[in-house]
């Protein structure tokens, strides 16, 4: 019990501080509009009236935490998940593109890494392009990908997954190249003394050695995938997904909706990363690589 408190205590304290700061900022930012409204009907607000107003505006500059919580509650628990107004439904749309793109990106990243490690020509030629691909802002690339794919009749899930892949293959390539090269010269020589075929040293030495690196990359990759899927929903004015909620929210100044979509995306990202962290712990423990 005390042990739980030792970890939960600091976390809760930080949350409390953040909530207080958020409320403070909400009051400060929304006060102008509250005063503006009051002055138009020739009213001066007392401090408590002012605070009350800043907490309950319909389109506040910065919604108060409880407004966001209420919105999230109403759009998750109180809506059928098949409803177009359910945040769960929108999250699932984004999540499915995220997971598909992440799977593509992981496969592509691992394949490229294997090529780079085993072929000097690929090492020299592919890596610069991999790095270049990431220097182009995704916001510039995303609309082109979506539009081009739409033109050839591919729409919906795939274009978004494609952008997710574009963002998530990079950490996987970088991590896996490092991981597959982790065995030292002695370990490789040792394989040679057993005259092990190349495939054997890949499966029995390089691949297991790369696992810690792979998982570190996957954690970055899945978060990048989520960003990719959301960005992929922006340029077409998509009607579904967290990106669509953000976009619609900003069209109509629905700040509460924007914030709830943002928080939802953050929670989703954190859960995905935590899930991979869990798989990592289980795998590495099974392998005997962590005590």
């Amino acid at each position: 019990m005390t042990k739980l408190w030792h970890t939960a205590g600091p976390v809760l304290s930080i949350l409390l501080v953040l909530a207080l700061l958020w409320y403070g900022a909400a009051i400060a930012l929304n006060a102008a509009w509250a005063k503006d409204k009051a002055s138009r009907i020739d009213k001066t607000l007392s401090f408590s009236e002012l605070v009350a107003d800043t907490m309950s505006q319909e389109k506040p500059l910065l919604p108060a935490p409880h407004q966001v919580v209420k919105e999230i509650y109403e759009t998750t628990v109180l809506k059928k998940i098949t409803s177009k107004r359910s945040l769960v439904w929108h999250s699932w749309i984004t999540l499915s593109a995220t997971l598909l793109g992440f799977a593509f990106g992981t496969v592509l990243g691992v394949l490229l890494a294997v090529g780079i490690v085993y072929s000097r020509a690929m090492d020299m030629s592919v890596m610069p392009w991999v790095i270049t691909s990431q220097t182009i802002p995704i916001l510039a690339v995303a609309p082109m990908i979506i539009v081009v794919l739409n033109a050839v009749g591919v729409s919906g899930l795939l274009p978004k997954a494609f952008i997710s892949m574009y963002l998530s293959f990079f950490p996987v390539v970088v991590g896996m190249v490092k991981g597959l090269r982790a065995p030292d010269q002695m370990q490789l020589d040792q394989m040679r003394t057993w005259s092990a075929p190349k495939a054997t040293s890949f499966w029995k030495l390089r691949l297991p050695s790369s696992m810690p690196y792979l998982f570190a990359s996957l954690k970055i990759g899945i978060a990048a995938s989520l960003v990719g899927a959301i960005v992929g929903e922006l340029p077409t004015g998509a009607v579904a997904g967290l990106g669509a909620r953000l976009l619609a929210g900003s069209y109509y100044g629905q700040t509460i909706q924007i914030w709830s979509a943002l928080i939802c995306a953050a929670v989703l990202a954190a859960s995905l990363v935590a899930l991979i962290g869990m798989i990592e712990r289980i795998t590495l423990r099974r392998m005997g690589m962590v005590q």
Partner: peptide, 25 residues
């Protein structure tokens, strides 16, 4: 059989598993 200066056992294999490695190969 070649013994290097460092044992170079694979951390993800048990002692038995490490000794089995060349036999598997």
């Amino acid at each position: 059989g070649y013994v290097f200066q460092a044992a170079g056992l694979y951390p993800w294999r048990t002692i038995g598993g490490n000794i089995r490695l060349p036999l598997e190969i």
